[in-house]
Amino acid sequence: MHNLGFALSGAWQVLIAGLVLGAGLPILFALGIRSLAWGAGEATVSDSGVTVPGTRRPVGTAIGYLLFAVVVVGVLLGITFIVASGFGYKLDFSGFLPALVAK
């Protein structure tokens, strides 16, 4: 039954990592989209039927792209992880910035 113990201890770590990265990054991405939409302002249709763009909010646009950048960095870390482990390195998260160390 030792396998069950190993599997369960591995499973909850995968679950935590999955929630942080697998749900967390798309949530940031969704916030980015919301922020971008808010930044563009709400378009309204005037009485004459012409679409009038709403007031722009540059802060929203900036925050939106910032959130996208965070997501892209997350994805790049994911790719680095795949490549590095293949070449005998691993990502070390013990410092402030992730670093590549030999396995």
Partner: peptide, 10 residues
């Protein structure tokens, strides 16, 4: 995203 994260973490 969920699939990618779970595969990589595992």
């Amino acid at each position: 995203s969920g699939a990618a994260a779970v595969i990589l973490a595992s």
